[in-house]
Computed example of a mutant assay.
Amino acid sequence: MAGNRQSPLDLLLVAGLVILTDIFILVPALSGSFLRTIFGLLLVLFLPGYALIGALLPAKKDIDGIERALLSLGLSIAVVPLMGLGMNYTDWGIREVPVLTGLSIFTIFMCGAAYYRRRQLPEAEAFEVPVKASISALKTDLLGETRGENRSGADRAISMLLVISILASLGSLAYVIGNPREGEAFTEFYILGPDRIAENYPTNYTLGDSGTVVVGITNHEYRTVDYTMEIRLENRSLPLPENQKYVNLDRDVSWKEPVTFTPPFEGKNMKLEFLLFNETEKSVPYRNVHLWINVTKEV
């Protein structure tokens, strides 16, 4: 009967891994662990596709285990960029927490759909991962108890060596992933037009009018950095709110905000500079961008 059916261990494992990934990414005390990287790779490269395949193909006869695993990888690689593309056109943008939230909700929802579709099939036809059978086969192989016959010590030693080699390889992979070599340290600093695209910058003003551009900063310095931003018109500083003048960013975090300024004097082809200073050098700009603007008197 349906009430006596075993719980889908594979779907429970997928949902559990999603929750663990969320914990290791969102909890500051755990976010520095190499497990964060491993769980993150699983969430990006495998779990969404596996859950989606489970919902689309719930029966054993649909595809075998190897095909299911390969399709899980391929579908994950397809789903994640599409989700990122969609988020790029929302107010959330492609940032860590929104992407994590979207992938987590999608994967758990697909797990629920896969569970529902399997329940509609007879138990013998619904796909399941034969965990107990696999463990039993592994124990039999390692202990040499194959169909009542004892395997030789050499066979058992080879099997043990193979298992140890696989575990060692996985451990080495985990270490390499968790301790990547740091690339070049740098900071992105850019300005966008009012529509948040790299065009339609306000360049013509009437004296007394204000202009707005979107300023973006992304920290790729592999550490937390205290930035100081300054706007200068013809080398004359313009006022900025404190929360825009001083920006603190953790590693791999972005800041993108509209910045409003008012040119205080008239002139043609004047250089409007946006300067970014880091915490180690306060006199020389670390990054800078500029616009050429015209300011005229009101007629």
Rank of each mutant, 00 (worst) to 15 (best):
D10M: 06
V14W: 02
A15V: 08
A15N: 02
G16F: 06
G16T: 11
L30R: 08
G32Y: 05
S33E: 07
S33P: 08
F34C: 13
F34R: 11
L35F: 15
R36V: 03
T37Y: 05
F39W: 10
V44M: 15
L45V: 08
L45H: 04
P48Q: 11
A51N: 09
L56V: 15
L57V: 01
A59I: 05
K60I: 00
K60V: 00
K61Q: 09
I63M: 10
G65L: 14
I66C: 00
S72K: 05
L73Y: 15
L73I: 15
G74Q: 04
I77Q: 14
V79N: 10
V80C: 07
G86L: 07
G86H: 02
Y89G: 05
T90H: 01
T90W: 01
G93E: 05
I94V: 14
E96Q: 15
P98T: 11
S104E: 10
I108N: 09
G112H: 04
A114K: 02
Y115D: 12
Y116K: 12
R119L: 13
R119N: 10
R119T: 08
F127D: 06
E128D: 12
P130Q: 08
P130S: 06
P130W: 06
P130R: 12
S134K: 07
I135W: 07
L138T: 12
L142P: 03
T146P: 00
E149R: 15
N150W: 13
S152Q: 03
A154M: 13
D155T: 10
R156W: 06
L161P: 09
L162G: 14
V163N: 08
S165A: 15
A168G: 11
S169A: 12
S169L: 15
S169Q: 10
S169C: 14
S172W: 13
Y175F: 15
G178S: 03
N179R: 03
P180T: 06
P180M: 03
P180A: 07
A185K: 08
F189H: 07
Y190C: 01
Y190T: 12
I191P: 02
L192E: 10
G193W: 04
P194K: 00
D195S: 13
R196M: 11
I197A: 11
E199Q: 13
Y201Q: 05
N204C: 00
G208P: 01
V214G: 00
V214P: 02
I217E: 10
V225A: 00
N243V: 12
K245G: 09
V253T: 06
P258N: 03
P258A: 01
T260V: 05
P263L: 07
F265K: 08
F265H: 02
G267T: 02
L275P: 02
L275W: 09
E279H: 03
S283R: 10
S283K: 12
N288Y: 06
V289T: 11
H290G: 04
H290F: 05
L291A: 00
V295D: 00
V295E: 01
